[in-house]
């Protein structure tokens, strides 16, 4: 009897500890966000958003950085989305269970685990040097596309897998070809899952810094990129640059830029979470 009550007591203790642990991470996140807002919010004005970088913290802005991030977002989407979905469809629907498919499978899992900086090294050699794109938007977005491709492929495959086999069978039994079935049934049914995966991976691309540093994206770019071949900077690069400076003014700038970056990232994550939530409610197979 005593043993039982001790057990109960321990159980309750762990419950409290569990709540504490769960909120610890969130609490730290909260404190940090509040800190950033306090530090950076006052700096966040139209001048900050519309100014070019400067040696003086008070005059510096993030115009080139956020436009660069938008460029990267757009170019990366254009390359990674069709390739990622295409690869996922092939792997999920067309590949036979042979050694090639197995190799591709293992390969993709491995790619997803390779540190982003290694992709930077790849981009540096292939896109910057061999293809002679230099430290341009094109080189940056290609590098990031390769980086997020495995994530898009994996999430698209998961979404395709979640479409019931019975739907596919029904469509095939109606005389539809493989591609008609994929195009008319599977992709629409999996669309919200695919979309969620894409948004999350693009959010990741927006936040990446390391590979861009390696391919030679510059922290100081005094003009707004006009073509994909232009040199560029992005928000995380700008933040990194400012963080490593001694003056407090730049720290404030970094905090403000972080706010902008986080707004980007949170909005995208929010959309993804909303879609996941909506799709989990919508169709009951």
């Amino acid at each position: 009897m005593i043993k039982a009550s001790t057990n109960q007591w321990k159980d309750q203790l762990f419950r409290i500890y569990g709540i504490g642990a769960t909120f610890f991470g969130l609490l730290i996140l909260g404190i940090f966000l509040v800190g950033i807002v306090i530090e950076g919010f006052s700096r966040l004005d139209f001048q900050f958003l519309s100014s070019l970088p400067s040696r003086l913290p008070g005059k510096a802005g993030i115009l080139t950085a956020w436009t660069g991030s938008l460029w990267i977002f757009g170019l990366t989407s254009i390359t990674s989305i069709p390739i990622g979905i295409g690869a996922a469809i092939w792997l999920e629907e067309y590949s036979k269970k042979n050694r090639l498919a197995n190799l591709l499978e293992i390969n993709i899992s491995n790619l997803a685990g390779i540190p982003s900086i290694i992709y930077g090294i790849l981009g540096l050699e292939i896109f910057v040097r061999m293809m002679k794109f230099g430290g341009s938007l094109l080189a940056g977005s290609f590098t990031l596309s390769l980086l997020i491709l495995p994530i898009i492929i994996v999430s698209t495959r998961e979404a395709l897998k979640a479409v019931p086999r019975s739907i596919i069978q029904a469509s095939l039994a109606m005389g539809a070809t493989r591609w008609q079935t994929i195009w008319l049934q599977q992709l629409p049914a999996a669309s919200s899952g695919i979309f969620t995966g894409i948004i999350l991976s693009l959010a990741r691309a927006i936040g990446e810094t390391a590979p861009l540093i390696v391919i030679g994206a510059l922290a100081y770019v005094p003009f707004v990129a006009k073509t994909p071949m232009d040199e560029f900077t992005v928000l995380p690069m700008q933040i990194f640059n400012w963080v490593s400076r001694p003056q407090h003014g730049f720290i404030v700038n970094a905090a403000a830029a972080i706010l902008v970056l986080l707004i980007f990232v949170f909005i995208m994550n929010g959309i993804a979470i909303y879609f996941r939530y909506k799709s989990s409610k919508k169709v009951k197979w």
Binding site: N107, L122, E125, L149, R178, W179
Partner: peptide
Amino acid sequence: GEKIIEGVLFLCALITILTTVGIIWVLLK
């Protein structure tokens, strides 16, 4: 048409292999 589509999709999947090959080749070289 079906064959062409399958081929294009396969090329997409092949890019992942090329990425790995590229990484290893660049690092090793």
